[in-house]
Amino acid sequence: MTAAPGSAARLQGLDAARGLAVIGMMAAHTWPRAGDGAELLVDGRPSVLFAVVAGLALGVVTGGERPVDSGGRRARSRLALRAVLLLLAGLLLWMLPSGIAIILDAYGVMFLLLLPLLLAPRWLLAATAAGFLVLAPLVRDQVVAVTGAGPTGPTRAPDGAAVLLDWLLTGYYPALLWLPLLLVGLLCARSGLHRARVRVLMLGLGAAACLAGYGAAAVLPGVEAAAHSGTTAELLGAGGLAIAVVGGALLLLDSPRVPRAVTALGTPVAALGRVALSVYVGHVLVIALLEPLGPAGFFEPAVGIPLLVVLTAAGIALGVACDRLRRRGPLEAALSGLVDLALPRGGSARLGA
């Protein structure tokens, strides 16, 4: 979905934001908790950052502020196939006894929903994002009130209709509710991520949206912004935080006037971000293998914190090794290989890059 390691067009800040998202999700699955149901800062927000970065990355590989459809139908088909493969990978991971709410299948569904708007003008992206931000949570609430549906995980849902409902509206990562996150990321990419003014606006407006969402939940009765609540306030708060993080990362890691010592601090996290799929799947497999310890064991300091350190260090080591060898991550390469096998690249296709 992004340029090859070492490409001049690659944005370190974008990779670092993706790396932070993966580390945050691993922390949510391992960090000690004060008690049952206690919410941590890393609950929900890293997965929102992951979704926002997805929209940004799709915008970058489709031409940035000057989108082009140079690959035509074949390039769109390649991107759709990637989405389907992610969906299938997510379903397989749901079958493991990890106790983790897998995001990859929902991620694939979000990609498919985004395809029709991939090359839309900025005004349409903004209007669609605003509409879904307000209306989708209302529709979800009505559906839940009528059906009593709630997050179950695709492999545990009783039938196909329930799986679809889980993906679109009632799951942990409901695609229709989260579509504004990808659209805002795409909108930022269309505005020109290489522009300092755009990065500053992302930082400032993202922080303002974060304050508005979480502030509304703090002072207004009946407004909720808890992780995975799927309310407008949560999406605004967590989405704004994600945009601010990306804007800040771009300012710190992709600005020529920033000292190299500062940019060097983000290099390991950016390296992890370039192998995000491999690291995410790897941490699910590790936790599933350790499941005999008991799910609660991962929330004990003696288990959870060392496990998070090991997983993060291993992810960074994998990313650095792949950078040195100028190769993609193992699963990133496998995904691209499968797409190439099914739909060989056209001469100038970009959407399937």
Rank of each mutant, 00 (worst) to 15 (best):
A136T: 09
G282H: 07
L179A: 11
L14W: 06
E65Q: 14
L331M: 11
Y280G: 05
V42D: 02
G237E: 03
L104D: 06
W167P: 01
V163G: 02
L86Y: 08
D69N: 13
A57I: 11
P67R: 11
G160Y: 00
Y107R: 04
S47L: 09
P221H: 08
V163N: 06
G131L: 13
G222I: 03
L165F: 00
S255E: 15
G35L: 05
A126P: 06
G37N: 02
L308W: 11
L169K: 05
L253T: 08
G239C: 12
L20R: 01
R190P: 00
A271D: 11
E39I: 11
L211E: 09
A27T: 08
G24Q: 09
L311S: 06
R190T: 01
S7W: 00
H228T: 11
A227P: 05
L56V: 14
L236P: 01
A271R: 09
L135T: 14
L205C: 15
G304Y: 11
I243Y: 02
A209E: 13
G206S: 07
S47D: 12
V22K: 10
P154I: 10
P121L: 12
T232Y: 00
L318R: 13
A136L: 10
A9M: 11
L311W: 06
L235P: 03
A3V: 13
E300W: 08
G297D: 08
G213N: 09
G266P: 00
H194K: 11
A57Y: 13
A145L: 13
T232L: 13
L241I: 09
P121A: 12
A242I: 06
S229V: 01
L41T: 13
D141Y: 14
L20I: 12
L176E: 02
V139F: 14
L341V: 01
P137E: 01
G273A: 07
L179S: 04
L203R: 00
S255C: 15
A238R: 07
